[in-house]
Lab assay of single mutants.
Amino acid sequence: ELVLALYDYQEKSPREVTMKKGDILTLLNSTNKDWWKVEVNDRQGFVPASYVKKLD
């Protein structure tokens, strides 16, 4: 499943990933309501769920 980055996000820990507004990311896990695991540029990590939106 793919998600769209709604905002820029700068990683604050090694478990997170940086994304730019408009990026298309692969959603790996959305079981946590606050932090979703995504893959971007061959890196996996977490981003705030409120910063991304699922693409239909």
Rank of each mutant, 00 (worst) to 15 (best):
E1Y: 14
L2Q: 11
L2W: 13
L2V: 08
L2F: 15
L2T: 09
L2S: 08
V3D: 00
V3P: 00
V3H: 04
L4S: 05
L4H: 04
L4E: 12
A5G: 03
A5S: 05
A5R: 00
A5N: 00
L6K: 06
L6P: 01
Y7P: 00
Y7R: 15
Y7H: 11
D8W: 03
D8C: 04
D8K: 03
D8P: 06
Y9N: 00
Q10D: 13
Q10V: 14
Q10I: 15
E11H: 09
E11Y: 05
E11A: 15
E11M: 12
E11L: 08
E11I: 06
E11G: 15
K12P: 04
K12R: 14
K12T: 12
K12S: 12
S13T: 13
S13L: 10
S13H: 11
S13R: 08
S13V: 05
P14H: 11
P14E: 14
R15W: 15
R15A: 12
E16G: 12
E16F: 06
E16V: 05
V17E: 00
T18G: 09
T18Q: 04
T18P: 07
M19S: 00
M19D: 00
M19K: 00
K20V: 10
K20F: 12
K20D: 04
K20G: 04
K20C: 10
K20W: 10
K21D: 02
K21L: 04
G22I: 02
D23K: 03
D23P: 01
I24T: 07
I24V: 12
L25E: 01
L25G: 14
L25T: 01
L25H: 04
T26D: 04
T26F: 14
T26K: 15
T26E: 08
T26Y: 13
T26G: 09
T26H: 12
L27G: 01
L27S: 02
L27Y: 02
L28H: 05
L28F: 04
N29F: 06
N29R: 05
N29M: 09
N29P: 03
N29C: 10
S30W: 09
S30G: 14
S30A: 13
S30Q: 10
T31S: 15
T31N: 13
T31E: 14
N32M: 09
N32S: 10
N32A: 09
K33C: 09
K33A: 13
K33T: 11
D34Q: 11
D34C: 13
D34F: 15
W35T: 03
W36I: 05
W36V: 07
W36M: 04
W36S: 03
K37T: 08
K37P: 01
V38I: 08
V38R: 00
V38H: 00
V38W: 00
E39M: 13
E39A: 13
E39N: 07
E39L: 11
E39C: 12
V40D: 10
V40R: 15
N41K: 14
N41G: 15
N41L: 14
D42R: 11
D42C: 13
D42V: 07
D42T: 09
R43A: 06
R43W: 05
R43H: 08
Q44N: 08
G45Y: 04
G45N: 01
G45D: 02
F46W: 15
F46G: 01
V47T: 01
V47S: 00
V47H: 01
V47W: 00
P48N: 02
P48C: 04
A49N: 03
S50L: 09
S50Q: 11
S50C: 11
S50Y: 09
Y51L: 12
Y51G: 06
Y51A: 10
V52K: 01
K53P: 02
K53S: 11
K53L: 13
K53R: 11
K53H: 10
K54V: 12
K54Q: 08
K54E: 06
K54M: 12
K54N: 06
L55S: 05
L55W: 08
L55R: 04
L55M: 10
L55D: 05
D56R: 09
D56W: 10
